[in-house]
Simulated scan of single mutants.
Amino acid sequence: MSLITWGIISMMMAIVWNDWSFYILRVLLGAAEAGLYPGMILYITYWFPRRDRARAIGLFLLGVSLANIIGAPLGGLLLQMDGLLGFHGWQWMFVIEGLPAVVLAFLVWFWLPDRPRDAKWLNNEDKELLEEQLAAEDDGVGQEAHGFRSLLPVAKDPIIWLVIAVYFTHQVAVYSLSYFLPAMINAFDKDMTTVTIGLITAVPWIAAAIGSVIMPKFGTTLMKQKAMVSGGLWSVAIGLVIAALSGGNLWLAVFGFCFAAFWFFVIQSMLFTFPGRRLTGAAVAAGIALVNTFGLFGGFLGPTIMGSLETSTGNPLAGLWFIIVLTVAGGALAWGLRGSRRESETETTPNA
């Protein structure tokens, strides 16, 4: 349902007629989208053991990178359809880019099985083996909680709140770059066409796609995942420092953005393994949703502050320093992350 409603409301953005219609549709769009990401992360926990979960999430997040790689230049081309059949280019953009979500929703509903035991492509032995392995790892808290009660073990777990804090700093960086990258690129050359801006904007997302495919497979243990979250956030900071200090050199800035973006979905794939480690049952869904919800506040705060700093300084790159400070702090916080009780005991036991 999230895909269908999101696609329809996205297409309806083509008919906004004043400020309030824009605000209302944007709120509805966010509400429609809210359940998709947590639902997909929860779905992955039904299929992949902990050792493989970060890699699976990384491959899922490859879709975000591909959407930006294709969407940025595609958006530039669609904007040039201005006047076709009496519609503005931005209206064509919303309609054409929203339609695939509606179509894919039906494919997902009829094609994806709920759990391994429902998969027609697995034999009975493979189904039992996978289900047993997943059940053996299910040592979190919250098994008996349902409904609003499932929030209690989430709210009581300090590690979940630490994941939220780290994810918040990450989302500030991702959303700020997503919103302001075209403007920052355009600042280097005001005569760029929308297609050129779109093509250059796609380059860092190619780096993000490469990172999401290559790196998560190495996050097979708790310690490795903590190191990749922390090191990844500090690498994002380094990349943004390069971009901020690039002066008038466009390609040096693009290199810095690429270096930062490479780690975006590596970090995210690691962080979303922790709710499944710490919790179980309905509490896993509640934990994933809570992490995602508070993370999206970072997605709101980042672009807002970036915009304010750009307006006050006249420099589109000025807001990068705000993101740099937050990602450095997030990298330090990441070292406090812990897995399940069993994993934590193993981590602290010598020669384990």
Score class of each variant (00 low, 15 high):
residue 324 I to G: 12
residue 241 V to K: 01
residue 270 M to E: 14
residue 15 I to S: 15
residue 156 K to E: 13
residue 162 L to S: 07
residue 66 L to A: 11
residue 281 G to L: 03
residue 303 P to D: 14
residue 127 K to P: 11
residue 152 L to V: 08
residue 43 Y to Q: 13
residue 338 R to K: 15
residue 276 G to K: 03
residue 61 L to M: 13
residue 177 L to Q: 12
residue 309 L to V: 11
residue 296 L to T: 10
residue 216 P to W: 01
residue 9 I to C: 01
residue 93 M to D: 00
residue 50 R to H: 12
residue 103 V to I: 12
residue 187 A to F: 13
residue 239 G to W: 11
residue 20 W to C: 03
residue 188 F to T: 06
residue 86 G to Q: 09
residue 262 F to Q: 03
residue 262 F to S: 06
residue 99 L to Y: 08
residue 44 I to K: 01
residue 269 S to I: 00
residue 174 V to A: 05
residue 69 I to L: 02
residue 310 E to H: 05
residue 88 H to S: 14
residue 167 Y to N: 08
residue 43 Y to C: 07
residue 79 L to T: 06
residue 13 M to L: 13
residue 266 V to C: 09
residue 217 K to C: 08
residue 163 V to A: 04
residue 103 V to M: 06
residue 133 Q to W: 08
residue 217 K to R: 15
residue 335 W to F: 09
residue 125 E to S: 13
residue 183 A to E: 15
residue 211 G to C: 03
residue 78 L to I: 10
residue 267 I to M: 08
residue 234 W to V: 04
residue 84 L to I: 06
residue 109 W to R: 02
residue 20 W to N: 10
residue 126 D to S: 07
residue 170 H to T: 13
residue 88 H to G: 11
residue 282 A to D: 14
residue 50 R to I: 09
residue 336 G to E: 10
residue 29 L to P: 02
residue 319 G to K: 09
residue 153 P to V: 00
residue 6 W to H: 07
residue 350 P to W: 07
residue 5 T to P: 02
residue 281 G to C: 04
residue 227 A to F: 15
residue 265 F to A: 01
residue 272 F to W: 07
residue 146 H to L: 04
residue 240 L to V: 07
residue 257 F to R: 02
residue 338 R to S: 14
residue 280 T to C: 11
residue 153 P to D: 05
residue 132 E to V: 05
residue 41 I to D: 08
residue 323 I to T: 13
residue 327 T to W: 00
residue 142 G to C: 01
residue 222 L to I: 14
residue 199 L to Q: 04
residue 118 D to E: 10
residue 136 A to G: 07
residue 32 A to M: 02
residue 193 T to G: 12
residue 86 G to S: 08
residue 351 N to A: 11
residue 176 S to Y: 00
residue 75 G to A: 12
residue 198 G to L: 03
residue 318 A to C: 06
residue 260 A to P: 12
residue 219 G to K: 02
residue 25 L to R: 00
residue 235 S to F: 12
residue 137 E to A: 12
residue 346 T to N: 12
residue 5 T to G: 04
residue 169 T to Y: 01
residue 81 M to L: 15
residue 30 G to Q: 01
residue 216 P to N: 00
residue 239 G to I: 10
residue 248 G to D: 02
residue 323 I to Q: 09
residue 50 R to G: 12
residue 29 L to M: 02
residue 94 F to M: 10
residue 338 R to P: 07
residue 60 F to H: 10
residue 78 L to E: 06
residue 28 L to C: 06
residue 109 W to G: 01
residue 335 W to H: 09
residue 296 L to N: 15
residue 344 S to T: 11
residue 53 R to G: 08
residue 255 F to L: 14
residue 79 L to K: 10
residue 194 T to I: 13
residue 5 T to V: 08
residue 197 I to E: 11
residue 83 G to M: 04
residue 215 M to E: 07
residue 261 A to F: 01
residue 71 G to H: 02
residue 9 I to K: 01
residue 228 M to Q: 14
residue 178 S to T: 15
residue 246 S to Q: 09
residue 167 Y to P: 06
residue 181 L to N: 14
residue 32 A to W: 07
residue 46 Y to P: 03
residue 173 A to W: 04
residue 170 H to Y: 15
